[in-house]
Design a protein around this nucleic acid. Structure first.
Length: 484
RNA sequence: UCCCCGAUAGCUCAAUGGUAGAGCAACCGGCUGUUAACCGGUUUGUUGUAGGUUCGAGUCCUACUCGGGGAGCCA
């Protein structure tokens, strides 16, 4: 590969004048965003070039005496170029500095400019989803990609700085005890020639002992049960990895493949868990506002007016913590006073989306942490609250609700008492033998512990103001959607 | 999975059951330190798929596919 004669720099550094100043020689490489040609001054082209390193492209001014001028005149959106020149103060408005080009080299042309899928104009997000391999070249998806990176690193930094260890929990699981919805099967059996064996009742069933793992295997729906084992030795741990749900969910808030962050802390109760969740969300917002100010300004201006004020409000206001029972009373009073709910509010049933939205968007207008849900609507591993009235048993669960998104975090203090855990397994008709290693944790040095799960893409929606979860992950997987 | 809405040029959208249109993009020309540039011109169609009704269907009916909004499941 040919090298530039002068120093090749990232556009982000050129525009910020890091390692270069006006008058310096520079080379940039990237993709053309726009090209405007002028006949003034003997002919010149204004070529804006993005290399994805920051929101703004850099403008190169190519005059007729520059090497490669004839090619520069033919540049269209999407062409890959190298530009050499001098950094100068811009004579035009809209940019402080620009590159006075001495040479332009076209690295890759666009075959057919008329049908280039992301030409220089407005496109709907639905359309761009159909060209997911090219949509990252747009303002919006470039910004999404950089914010996603920024938040990913912030997640690791937050936990690392607080003494948490990052645990790689398995993607494939042969235990059928995670119990969080439909799972994707993992198998190497020939679907056209499935081995079968007889069941005790005389029927036939697939013989998974002949499958790759010797038993049924699936993609994980949660790393929590596995990460609890490491928590019971390393004290403070977290996972951050892909998660899979085979639910037929067709919404703007669900994916079949998404990334989840699951911290788990030992010697901790539900309030320590909520403290952690709150500090965590604040840290992430603060980081992205500081490190991706350029992209966040774009989201504020073009995606959601008031976004930055909304995020700053979250930074400055403590989350409102509220027991489920009080939330139900509050919602019933609101309904009496005229709040329009499609579904009734009753103790013992899960809150509907409209109820959650009322609490966080209308009543409190801030993130809300709902705690101590009825045990009947929560998972077996959540800790039974002490001192409950008969018929009003609750568990130490918490959901963090935020405006616009609804539930962004679900967590709980875990049941660390073996007898209570076994009681819950029995009540929910779950076979104890499937939970051998999980029950062992309660037999060998059990401790109170707690954790939560945060859907990374939902965090992205909350932080960017984007509306559809399929637009905040590079290549979305959802029912009937696994292209690219 | 359920309810509602939609699918027409490369993109965004028009078109009373009666000849398929505009803006943008692209291309050509004009003007211009341009920047959502502007002005003039040119090119662009299996109207999502399969049936049906009708003299005639982009338009009406049925099914399917895909997309959007809402709900459920949840993160």
């Amino acid at each position: 590969m040919r090298r530039c004669g002068v120093k090749w720099m990232r556009v982000a550094d050129v525009l910020a004048r890091r390692g270069i100043d006006v008058g310096g020689a520079v080379c940039v490489k990237g993709w053309v965003r726009s090209n405007r040609e002028s006949k003034a001054d003997g002919g010149l082209c204004f070529v804006t070039i993005s290399d994805g390193t920051c929101f703004d492209p850099v403008q190169a001014v190519v005059r007729a005496d520059a090497a490669g001028f004839a090619n520069a005149q033919r540049l269209t959106a999407g062409c890959a170029v190298e530009v050499e020149g001098t950094l100068v103060e811009s004579q035009g408005k809209g940019q402080a500095v620009e590159i006075a080009a001495t040479a332009v080299r076209v690295v890759g042309w666009v075959d057919d400019p008329e049908t280039y899928p992301v030409s220089n104009k407005r496109h709907t997000f639905e359309y761009l989803r159909e060209v997911a391999h090219l949509r990252v070249r747009t303002n919006t998806f470039g910004a999404v990609a950089r914010v996603r990176h920024c938040l990913s690193f912030a997640v690791h930094r937050f936990f690392h700085e607080r003494g948490f260890y990052y645990v790689h929990t398995p993607i494939i699981t042969a235990s059928d005890c995670e119990g969080a919805g439909q799972m994707f099967r993992v198998s190497t059996l020939d679907l056209l020639k499935l081995p079968t064996r007889s069941r005790p009742d005389g029927g036939r069933e697939v013989d998974f002992s002949q499958d790759f793992f010797g038993k049924e295997a699936h993609l994980t729906v949660s790393g929590q049960l596995n990460v609890e084992t490491y928590c019971s030795a390393l004290s403070r741990v977290y996972t951050f990895g892909p998660t899979f749900r085979a639910e037929n969910s067709n919404t703007s808030r669900h994916l079949a493949e998404f990334w989840m962050i699951e911290p788990e802390i030992a010697f901790a109760d539900l309030h320590a868990d909520a403290d952690l969740a709150e500090e965590f969300i604040r840290f992430l917002i603060d980081t992205v506002l500081t490190e991706r100010a350029d992209d966040m300004r774009f989201f504020e201006e073009r995606i959601e007016k008031g976004l930055i004020a909304r995020l700053r409000h979250v930074l400055e206001t403590p989350f409102r913590r509220l027991p489920y029972t009080e939330a139900v009373e509050l919602l019933r009073r609101a309904a009496d006073k005229g709040a329009k709910f499609e579904f009734p509010v009753a103790w013992g049933t899960d809150l509907q989306s409209e109820h959650e939205r009322y609490l966080t968007e209308e009543h409190f207008k801030q993130p809300v942490v709902l705690m101590h849900y009825p045990k009947s609507i929560k998972a077996f591993y959540m800790r039974l609250d002490d001192g409950c009235a008969p018929g009003r048993e609750t568990v130490s669960a918490m959901d963090v609700l935020v405006p616009r998104i609804g539930e962004i975090i679900g967590g709980s203090q875990r049941e660390e008492r073996l007898d209570r855990l076994d009681q819950r397994l029995d009540e929910m008709k779950l076979p104890k033998e499937d939970y051998g290693w999980y029950r062992d944790l309660r037999r060998y040095g059990t401790v109170p512990h707690a954790g939560f799960g945060l859907g990374f893409e939902r965090l992205m929606l909350f932080v960017t103001g984007m509306q559809n979860i399929r637009d905040v992950i590079p290549f979305p997987r959802a029912p009937k959607q696994a292209d690219f």
